[in-house]
Design a binder for these strands. Sequence first.
DNA 1: TTGTATGCGTTATCAA
DNA 2: TTGATAACGCATACAA
Lengths: 344, 344
Amino acid sequence: MAVTIKKIAELCGVSRGTVDRVLNNRGKVKPETEALIRRVAEQLDYKPNIAGKALAARKKSFVIGVIVASEGNPFFDDVLKGIHQAENELHDYGVKIIIKTMKGYDIQRQLKLIEELEGGIHALILNSISDAEIAAKIDELTDKGIPVITLNTDIENSKRLCYVGCDYVKGGETACGMLGLLTGGRAKVGVITGSVKILGHNQRVQGFRNVIKRRYPGIEVVDFAESNDDDIIAFEATKKMLLEHKEIDALFIAAAGAYGVCRAVISLGLENKITIVCFDDVPSTVEMMEKGLIKATICQQPFLQGNKSVHIAYDYLVSGARPHNDQFIVENKIKILENLYQTP
Amino acid sequence: MAVTIKKIAELCGVSRGTVDRVLNNRGKVKPETEALIRRVAEQLDYKPNIAGKALAARKKSFVIGVIVASEGNPFFDDVLKGIHQAENELHDYGVKIIIKTMKGYDIQRQLKLIEELEGGIHALILNSISDAEIAAKIDELTDKGIPVITLNTDIENSKRLCYVGCDYVKGGETACGMLGLLTGGRAKVGVITGSVKILGHNQRVQGFRNVIKRRYPGIEVVDFAESNDDDIIAFEATKKMLLEHKEIDALFIAAAGAYGVCRAVISLGLENKITIVCFDDVPSTVEMMEKGLIKATICQQPFLQGNKSVHIAYDYLVSGARPHNDQFIVENKIKILENLYQTP
DNA sequence: TTGTATGCGTTATCAA
DNA sequence: TTGATAACGCATACAA
C-alpha cells in the first residue's frame, strides 16, 4: 500500500496535522519532531496523492493570468485553444483564467499588461520579451509569491518558474536536415528570418548553420533578410532577394511571413525551382503546402504549449510541483502534406 | 461552481446514495425518482469529479492483464516502458499489472495466454491477432465484464472496448510522401513488408500506393518481398531483389527487418545509390540512420501506446469513461537524424 | 507547539 | 427502495 500522511503520523507517534506542517513547510514544529518526520517520509518515499490534493484544493480558487502577443499572429490561435481547454479541464478545481493579448513585442506595453493583472492573479503565464526590464518585473512578481511561467519565448537571468516551448536551435537543425534531404545536400539558400532582435529566430538560424557545418558542406547561405513577421515585408524582401541572387534555389523561413515569401516566389514564376522549408502550420502555410510550394514545415505543438503552461501553473499552486529542469520542451515535428492532419 | 452529486441530491430532495445509484446504474431506485434525477443531472450537465472518483477508488484494487508479442521484437521495448510507467503512476490507485509476452503471432498460444489470465484480471490489454477465434474470445471476456483494449494491432468485428495504436494507412502515405520528396518524385521501389497476413503491414503498403497514385506517378513499385519481421530473411530477400532488379534505387520497408535490409544494401556496395524509408526507431535503425543508410523513418509513439492503453483501462474501470470513437490513435512522426532524439 | 475536527466528491456499507 | 454514515488523502481552522 502507498505511503500516506496518516501512516507517517502513526509511525512517528504524532498527529496528521503535524506531519502536514512539516511536509508543507508551514513551520511551528519542534525541530526534533520535524527531523524525525522528514526522515521517515524520506525513507518510505512518501509521494503526496494528487487526487487528495486536488480534492482539498477545490475549496480554494486560483486565478491565472496569461499575456500573449497573439494579435495578428495566427500561430497563437492553437496556443490559445490549448489554454482554453486547460481552463475547461481545471474548471472543476477552481481555476479561472484572465487572458490579455498584445500585438508585437513592445516592452512598455507588456509591462503595463503585467501591472494590470498583478493585483488579481495567483500565477502568470507570459509570452515574454527577452529584456532586462521584463526580467526585473518577473523577479518582482516571483518575490511577491506569484510564479511566472514563460510561454513560447524564454527570458534569461530571471526567477521565472519554468519555460514552456520548443528548442529553437534543434528546430533550425531539423529544418536544415530536411532541406539537405530534399536537395541532395546541394543548395544556395536565402534565409528570411523574423527579426535579429528575437532570440528564438536567431537560434533557429544558428541551428541551421550548425547542420550545414556538420553535414552539408554543399549547402550555402547566400543572402539573409528580415520580415518582422509581416507578410508584406516578407513579400518585398523575398522578391528583392530573388532578383538579386538568381542562383538561389532554396529558402529557409525562420519565422512568420511564409505566405508573403511564397507569394513572391509565385510572382516571379519560380514555383518549380525553389525548395522552401519553414515553421508552423498556420492555415496560409497549409494552403501553400497543398499548392506544393512549401515542401516541409517544422511544427512546435502550439496547442500543447498553451495547455501545458496552464497545467504547470496549477500543479505548482496546488502542490509546489515544478517540471524537471525548470522547463517543458515540446517537440519539433516534421510535417509534410501526407501527415499534416493528425490527432494533436 | 461545478455540479456535484450532493447538489443534485438536494435539488431532487433525495440522498446522495440514491443519486449515486441512479448515475452508476446500480438499480434499486423507484422509476419516478430515477427519471427525475436523470433529468436534473442532464440539465445541469453533471460531470463526475475525477479526483473524487480516484480517491474513492483507492479502496479497491484493479488487476490489468497485458499480452504482447514482444519477444525478439525491440519495437515493444518502449511499449513496455510506457506500460511500466503507467503502472507506477497508478500504483497509488491500486492498479496491478500482469504482463505475458509471446513471440510472433500464434493464435493458439495467444488463446492460451488469455485463458491463463482471464480468471485473475479486471481488464485485458491485448496486442491482438486479427483472427475470428481471438475475436470470439474477446467477446466472451467482454460479456463477462472484462473489457478488452487492443494495443498496436486492432481486430475487426469484436466487442473490444477500444483500439490504441497508429493509423497504418496514413503511416504508409507519409512514408511515400517522404520518399517522393527525397527522390524528386522519381524512383524504382522495392517493397519489403513483414507479412501479407498482418493487416497493419498491408495497410501501410496500401497507403504507400495511395500516394503514388495521388501524387507521384514517377514512383514505381518494381518488386515486393516478405521478411516475416526477421532480419536474416530480410537480408536474403533484399539481396535477391537487388540482384534481380538492378534498376531499384529506393526501398520501402513496411515492417521490422530494416537492419537486415540495410546490411544487404551494404554488402552489395549500394549505400550511395539507394534511398531507404522505414518505420520505427529501434536501436539498429538509429544506427543505420547515423551511418546515413536510412534517410527517414516513420515512428508511432510506442511509449505513448503502452502508457495510454493502461490509463484507458483504468479510467474505464473507475468511471466507465471510454475514449472518443472507441480508439486512441497515435501520430505517425517523421524522424530524420536531426530530430531523432527529443523528449517523448 | 501540537492535536482535533471538518470538508472536498465519490463510493460502499449498513440500517431502516 | 431509501437514507445515513464512514472512508479515501489532503488541507486548514480552531482548540488545547
